[in-house]
Design a protein around this nucleic acid. Structure first.
Lengths: 212, 212
DNA sequence: TTAGAAATCGGACTACGGTCCGTTTGAGCT
DNA sequence: AGCTCAAACGGACCGTAGTCCGATTTCTAA
């Protein structure tokens, strides 16, 4: 929503920031992209995401189905794009925000702060995320938010826990953030967020304890 | 395949073992269930699971589409049922097999042995599992194999790591077994199984170290 | 052995995700 | 301004997942 000076304009532009023609988007294309995103957000929140078809979104946005698919690829990507908008603030705070999440605090503290924030955000966006991660291949693991989380974790883990397999530890911390797991724990098992967050802290501490 | 005395006959019967009418299945129903499973296994391995439609399975099995859906609910459940057959041997060994996986060994050792076996099995069945876990809700987390893994982990963790949040630790160990994560790590990142297994052992050790 | 009830069978049908391609439009160049 | 062409548009179209219900088969009890 409120986009600062250097904030990326949209999520699907993140992977290939350089040499990306999406930045010089044609006026009608940009207008339609905004329309679709707005229409999707409106319909999803009105009826619940499962009761909105892609035709509904196209009609509400006043664009053709072809346009919808040209810009967003498929249903899951559309949902992930919506999540990406909500995620932008977290990205910003991770990179340039205040400690303990932003730079300045010790790596271990930044890692714990990241867990808090990312779990809160994902809890807030559960429905959209579940739809977004129901992707065809493993598109989810390469989506811009995941890629950003992964990079962030790798850098901080390398600093906080030298000597462990950082890449694998990263995946071990990413896996419990899966949308369908959160959905299951929250909506089917009624487990409070505090317990989920505490467990994530626990996993992190367990990994940090193995450093050196 | 080789089913011992008390082995359940099919996966979808596990959740409600008692008071379940599925055990006194009509003769034709049983025959058709077997036919469908066999047809699915054949077609999936022949063409790859993504190039087999439900109509294909029904036709190969010599059964109507209605029958197929009556017995298996949806595409994902069919895939999970196939995985359930492969999983049966692991279940058996977990409960009645030799140590260190089976009873007799210390809980911590049994946990490590479980990680080895379950990851090897899931690597073997990746395609089927990916299709099976692409379920509509979070059906995957309540599928018979997951339920069995969960129970097993809870009991052993309670013994090996008293004082920690056993339920949450269980989920932390279950999350990295997700089929799409394994698929991503193996097929997109080319990470060898040994590293994935080692990471799982590492997560487990980290949790065990927090006991008391 | 037979009749009747209950459960199963199977294919026609619906709705939706995703593709294709002829048409339109925006933007730079003369 | 007018021209040109790459890029975007949009709706007709296709394949498949999943539903429904009349016809058929199995089991039980008399």
């Amino acid at each position: 929503m409120s986009s600062g000076a250097h904030t990326v304009r949209s999520v699907e532009e993140l992977p290939q920031l350089d040499s990306d023609p999406a930045l010089c988007e044609r006026a009608d294309a940009a207008r339609n992209r905004r329309r679709v995103l707005a229409a999707a957000a409106k319909l999803f929140s009105e009826r619940g995401i499962d009761h909105v078809s892609m035709d509904d979104v196209a009609q509400e946005a006043g664009v053709g189905k072809g346009t919808l698919y040209r810009r967003f690829g498929d249903r899951a990507s559309l949902a992930l794009s919506l999540f990406g908008e909500r995620d932008a603030a977290l990205q910003e705070d991770m990179i340039r925000g205040e400690p303990p999440l932003g730079p300045g605090a010790p790596a271990a503290e930044r890692l714990h702060a990241f867990g808090e924030r990312v779990l809160a955000l994902r809890e807030d966006s559960l429905e959209i995320l579940v739809a977004g991660e129901r992707a065809v291949p493993i598109a989810r693991y390469e989506s811009p938010p995941y890629a950003a989380y992964r990079l962030h974790l790798r850098l901080l883990l390398a600093e906080a826990a030298p000597g462990i397999d950082v890449e694998m530890a990263t995946e071990a911390l990413l896996a419990p953030l899966a949308a369908d797991l959160l959905f299951y724990l929250r909506r089917h098992r009624d487990i409070p967020m505090e317990r989920i967050v505490a467990a994530w802290h626990g996993t992190l501490d367990g990994l940090l304890a193995q450093a050196d």
